[in-house]
């Protein structure tokens, strides 16, 4: 209880301080990187409901940055779920393009663009960088007749559409599975399962045969599941026996990075300050520990590189989207 009171008191005094200082001028105590930015709390919009990975990572990093005063103002997380991110982008547009309103997303953003869901594209954003990410895998039930991915592919080639894949159409599992099916030349039947929880439920209950999970989701569950193929660049140390699609000769990888985005017109000064703080956070041992424990890779990709990578991927996704629509 004491701890809580202290924390509440801390939060209150911080907020009071923030408003006081905000009205007087730049924060004198912050050994900030640039003068003038940030002059008010930075709103980080997460286009999902609270509780998911993107949300939790954003909150962790924001907390770390606040703790170490890497930015003179706190980062606050705002959840804006809905409309495949359209809601979040609208929120971003409501704020000024001065770096005080940014988005923390992942490559589902590219899928929304490829599916032409919202009225936004890459031109609307300035990339701040990737703060780590993780890759997914394909799993079957542990009592399944398929021990390896080759057996599964052979079976599907012999009897097309004989197995059911749980996925949300137009979501990451659909695109990753679609790329893999294209590369290996097979076809599955689909059943709608729009969340990881739904996919797990379907697979374990015998209502689907194949489902895609983040490696961390698999490692937390393990029981009842058998991973067949991993869509990362290299095998994971936690599952040394699971091959990557790449080493089997299929050019299919998916690294779902945590992507920080600002409005396109954000000034350089703000972008630099934010990127610097994010980069420092990614080097922090506690953050690295959380990432490793959740089989996420903790890395930092600067904004321009992240944007170039994403542009390339979007082209690929556009091709797949054309076959769906």
């Amino acid at each position: 209880m004491m701890r809580r009171i202290k924390m509440l008191a801390g939060g209150v005094s911080l907020a009071v301080a923030a408003t006081l200082i905000g009205s007087v001028g730049p924060n004198p105590t912050g050994h900030a990187q640039a003068e003038g930015f940030p002059s008010e709390p930075i709103r980080v919009i997460v286009p999902f409901k609270p509780g998911g990975r993107t949300d939790v990572v954003a909150r962790l990093i924001a907390e770390k940055i606040k703790e170490n005063d890497w930015l003179s103002q706190p980062m606050v997380i705002v959840n804006a779920d809905g409309g495949a991110g359209a809601n979040a982008v609208q929120q971003m547009r409501r704020g000024k393009a001065d770096g005080h309103t940014i988005i923390h997303w992942h490559h589902q953003a590219l899928i929304a663009m490829a599916m032409k869901l919202g009225d936004f594209g890459l031109d609307d954003f300035r990339s701040l960088g990737f703060t780590g990410g993780g890759s997914p895998l394909w799993a079957v039930r542990s009592d399944s007749e398929f021990e390896t991915i080759e057996q599964l592919i052979d079976h599907l080639k012999a009897e097309p559409r004989s197995l059911i894949e749980a996925l949300g159409i137009g979501s990451i599992p659909h695109f990753v599975g679609g790329m893999f099916a294209d590369a290996a030349g097979f076809e599955t039947r689909y059943v709608t399962a729009n969340s990881a929880a739904d996919r797990l439920r379907m697979l374990l209950g015998g209502n689907a045969d194949i489902a895609l999970f983040a490696a961390s989701e698999y490692l937390a569950q393990k029981e009842g599941l058998r991973p067949l193929v991993y869509f990362g660049l290299n095998r994971l140390p936690e599952m040394p026996d699971v091959p990557t699609a790449l080493e089997l000769g299929y050019d299919v990888t998916w690294a779902n990075p945590n992507w920080w985005l600002a409005p396109a017109d954000t000034p350089d000064e703000a972008v630099e300050a934010l990127s610097a703080a994010l980069e420092k956070a990614m080097a922090d041992p506690e953050i690295v520990e959380y990432f490793t424990n959740n089989t996420l890779e903790a890395y930092w990709t600067p904004g321009d590189e992240a944007m170039a990578e994403s542009e390339k991927l979007l082209e690929k996704l556009n091709k797949i989207a054309a076959t769906i629509q």
Binding site: P50, G51, G52, D55, Q221, K222, E223, N293, N294
Partner: peptide, 18 residues
């Protein structure tokens, strides 16, 4: 409940059979 799971993962706990 998704948030509840989120709270547990922060503490490196994952609900599930384990």
């Amino acid at each position: 409940e998704a948030i509840l799971i989120g709270a547990l993962t922060i503490h490196n706990l994952q609900p599930g059979p384990l």
